[in-house]
């Protein structure tokens, strides 16, 4: 085959010679396509803005931990009767609970807002800076680029959740005692199992963010302005959170992406209550499918003029 081609090539004379040899003989490996995903992740994590977002998230466990410590030093247990984030009253007994408290405190707003910024900016930001056209003529391929952007956003979801959880664990370990964990249902488990459950909770929280990541990606394909896409995504988050508060709207609430977010607490029961946890995962998968397809349909047919 290659010999036949070489023979035919020399027969074609000047035209064949005019083609630079290296371009005609490139045989790409499928693995090279992964470069784009790596490059996406690297690009997200080399922005000052990404670290600002992670910094805000990292501040939450530190502030909560220090506040609880100061309050309990004045005497009396924290959070009793005063409400506050879930599990806060347990933190003084066991630093591990700072992980649950911090995730419960950041999940309603800070975490999804950070995802909304990254997802909203992912396509629209490149469109407004003009780099999108150069990625497309590289050629990144529209479907592949969209997949790489979604995957990079999900990577950021994990990184953001882990930042909160890891910092909470570290602060909890420094400021409070660690030990056996008393679950919500009253059963006490070893610290090792507690840690495993914390990991599961972090996983559930990260997966809770898939819906807004897909939504943000879709919004991002609609506009040529990164700022507009970020603002719209965060606006949708706030709207969904508000709608989720009205009892009159109970008919649509099961379809709002934040509706089952706090179900992660059910992982801290023995036995675990799976119903809402699974409802949450199903809803996030539904959002990923619907808005992922919508983003794909929009992006693959869009005129890129910026």
């Amino acid at each position: 085959m290659s010999q036949a081609e070489a023979g035919a090539g020399s027969g074609a004379g000047a035209m064949a010679r005019a083609v630079p040899a290296a371009t005609a003989r490139r045989t790409p490996s499928p693995l090279w396509a992964l470069s784009l995903f790596r490059s996406e992740v690297a690009t997200v994590f080399r922005r000052w803005r990404t670290f600002a977002l992670l910094g805000v998230l990292a501040a939450v466990p530190v502030l909560v931990g220090v506040a609880v410590k100061m309050e309990t030093q004045d005497g009396g247990a924290a959070g009793h009767g005063g409400g506050g984030p879930a599990f806060i009253s347990q933190v003084t007994n066991n630093g591990l609970f700072l992980v649950f408290t911090s995730l419960a405190a950041t999940l309603p707003f800070f975490l999804p807002m950070a995802i909304g910024v990254i997802a909203g900016d992912s396509v629209a930001g490149e469109a407004s800076s003009g780099t999108l056209r150069y990625l497309l003529v590289a050629p990144a391929g529209r479907t592949r680029l969209l997949l790489a952007k979604f995957a990079a956003t999900l990577t950021f979801c994990c990184a953001a959740t882990l930042t909160v959880a890891a910092l909470a664990l570290a602060v909890g370990a420094v400021l409070f005692p660690l030990g056996d964990v008393t679950l919500i249902s009253g059963v006490t488990v070893s610290f090792g199992e507690g840690l495993l459950r914390a990991l599961a909770v972090a996983g559930a929280v990260a997966l809770s963010l898939v819906g807004i990541a897909a939504l943000g990606l879709f919004v991002s394909t609609l506009t040529g302005s990164g700022i507009a896409a970020m603002a719209t995504t965060v606006g949708l988050l706030i709207t969904a959170q508000i709608l989720d508060q009205f009892p009159q709207l109970h008919a649509i609430q099961p379809y709002l992406f934040p509706h089952y977010w706090l179900s992660f607490a059910d992982l801290l029961r023995a036995p675990v209550y799976w119903d809402q946890v699974l409802d949450n995962l199903g809803l996030q998968a539904l959002y990923a499918a619907v808005f992922g397809s919508a983003a794909w349909a929009r992006f693959t047919t869009k005129d890129i003029t910026a």
């Binding site: 490996s29 490059s39 050629p139």
Partner: peptide
């Protein structure tokens, strides 16, 4: 926010036929 060189690395990474 990237250096000149890293800009080129990024555009090259977008080409699936680039080794």
């Amino acid at each position: 926010f990237l250096t000149g060189r890293d800009n080129l690395v990024r555009f090259d990474a977008a080409d699936p036929t680039a080794d």
